Computed example of a mutant assay.
Amino acid sequence: MIKDKYSQYIRTIELKRKEIDDFECYPYNLNAVKYLNEISMHPNVTFFVGENGSGKSTLLEAIAVSFGFNPEGGTKNFNFSTYESHSDLYRYLKIIKGLKHPKDGFFLRAESFYNVASNIEQLDSEGIGARVIDSYGGVSLHKQSHGESFMSVFLNRLNGKGIYIFDEPEAALSPNRQLAFLSRMHHLVEEDAQFIIATHSPIIMSYPNSKIINLDDKMKEIKYEKTEHYLITRDFLNNTEKMLHLLME
């Protein structure tokens, strides 16, 4: 399913470059920022890929915060703060939205998902209104493995017709669960969802009808088969003994 650009929730991300004083200091010295002018987002799925330190998570966080999400993750209704470590990059982003407004949304970041799960427990312990955990499958996220709790979010909390911003969702997922995530993502796209994902996973970034932005090459779009993730994985699996021998010399 390919939506037109006006029906998607986020059309374009622009950096207000003239308002930034110094591109030599963090986070403006990161590839994800210093080469950013304008990114046209795919109506279905946009992937950010790049080496560690390229600024994927920093850019994704800024997009999420600029759109109204809590910096540590969750829905727009989450307003807790465990430790304010997010940068002020979000102040310099301009988000061009489509004509439709999302009815759902979630910002998932692997490094602070524990804090989201803890906040759900705290809210439910107060006994005010319906249990929040029921929207996540009814089982405490702390009483599941990391991967199971991620899948509980994907399968139960995401309802479609929403914007979903994910930072390395593969962090807790086995290859089999990554395939399950791909399937779930496709069903949500068919339900009018839009995803923005930072990932290292060649499985997840294989999703068709998407756009892959390479942060290591001045924010250029790249084909899946040209990504370092695909090439290294392919070469390693096809030449495992040779690759291991070279690595261990």
Rank of each mutant, 00 (worst) to 15 (best):
F150E: 09
N239V: 01
Y9V: 01
G160W: 02
T46G: 13
S201D: 06
E72F: 03
Y6S: 10
E148D: 06
I204L: 08
L89T: 05
N44E: 03
R109F: 04
S206M: 15
D124L: 12
L246N: 05
S149M: 07
S7L: 12
G160Y: 04
I39G: 09
D216F: 07
N238V: 06
L244Q: 04
N29L: 10
A130K: 14
V45S: 02
G98V: 01
L60M: 14
S118F: 13
K211S: 03
N119A: 10
S140T: 15
H101G: 04
M41C: 12
S66N: 03
Y136I: 14
N238F: 06
Y136H: 04
A172V: 10
D104K: 03
S140P: 13
D217Y: 13
Y164S: 14
Y83M: 12
K226L: 08
L215W: 09
K3T: 02
T82F: 04
H142S: 09
P71H: 05
K226M: 06
G105T: 14
E190M: 12
L89E: 02
S210D: 08
Y90H: 15
H101R: 11
T240K: 15
I165Y: 13
L89S: 08
R131G: 00
I2H: 02
L237S: 08
T12K: 10
G105K: 02
N238M: 07
K161V: 05
I232P: 06
G160S: 14
G129N: 03
H187F: 08
M185R: 06
S81V: 12
E51R: 14
L231W: 00
L155R: 13
K97C: 09
I196K: 11
K161H: 14
T75Y: 04
L59Y: 01
P175K: 03
E221A: 12
E190V: 04
D4Q: 11
F113D: 02
V49N: 04
I165N: 12
E121V: 05
H146E: 15
T58M: 07
G53S: 02
T240A: 13
H186S: 05
G68H: 07
Y35S: 14
N176K: 13
E126L: 13
Y92R: 06
N44I: 05
G55A: 14
Y224W: 01
S174G: 01
V65R: 04
G138Q: 09
K76V: 12
G73A: 05
Y136T: 15
S54R: 00
L237T: 10
I128A: 03
S66W: 01
I20M: 08
S85F: 05
H245T: 14
I2W: 01
V132Q: 01
K211I: 07
M1G: 11
R109M: 11
S81R: 11
N31A: 10
E228T: 01
L108Y: 15
G74F: 02
G98R: 02
T240D: 10
R17M: 07
G129D: 10
N52L: 00
R184Y: 11
L173S: 11
Y90I: 11
P202S: 09
